[in-house]
């Protein structure tokens, strides 16, 4: 299957779930989806045996510091898309040369995504990493023990969030 065919296949599979038009670069396809649609979208890819899950990347988009004097802007209500003041989880699927990314945004106070372990069992390692590093709670992941951080790491401290500046200041 060449690149264009792969892209078309992925687009057709993900079309029902996409919010807005997918963005496309040379070998990347980014599809923004709603949190609730995540398991269904992943299932669509897995059922069609479209590639494999390569990584779950967490991103932190903190609200930029307001310029002195300016009023801080209100965050948009609907948590969709790579907007600021959000945590984002990128589910990256790889098929041949193409990387298809499912982008899910969550707010800080409601940072939870559904687990995809029932569809892809090996995703648990990535999901645990996502939780430990970004504090995005993965609902329904089989094992929630510490994977990477030390056992005595303080709770509610997520090192890869931009607000984390070192353990002493964060505690």
């Amino acid at each position: 299957m060449d690149l264009e065919q792969t892209v078309v296949a992925a687009e057709t599979l993900l079309k029902p779930f996409a919010v807005g038009a997918p963005s496309r670069e040379a070998s990347r396809l980014d599809v923004v989806i709603r949190r609730a649609d995540l398991p269904a979208a992943v299932k669509a890819l897995v059922d069609a045996r479209w590639g494999y899950l390569a990584a779950i990347t967490g991103l932190d988009h903190p609200w930029p510091k307001p310029k002195p004097g300016a009023k801080p802007a209100e965050p948009p209500a609907e948590p969709v898309g790579p907007v600021e003041d959000r945590l984002e989880a990128l589910y990256q699927f790889v098929n041949g040369a193409l990387v298809a990314t499912l982008r899910v945004s969550v707010t800080y106070h409601d940072a939870r995504v559904p687990s995809i372990c029932s569809i892809i069992p090996s995703a648990t390692l990535y999901e645990r990493e996502l939780y430990e590093m970004f504090g995005i709670i993965v609902e329904g992941t089989p094992d929630t023990g510490r994977l990477l951080l030390p056992d005595d790491w303080p709770d509610n401290t997520y090192p890869l969030r931009k607000s984390f500046k070192g353990l002493n200041s964060a505690v």
Binding site: A54, A55, T57, L59, D60, V94, L125, Y126
Partner: peptide
Amino acid sequence: FYFLKSAGGLNPDRVKVRTPSLCNWG
């Protein structure tokens, strides 16, 4: 697998590294 994000500054904004060993543990 590397995921790189730049915010246009002197530093990387996010570098995600997914190494092959992690995939193979399962």
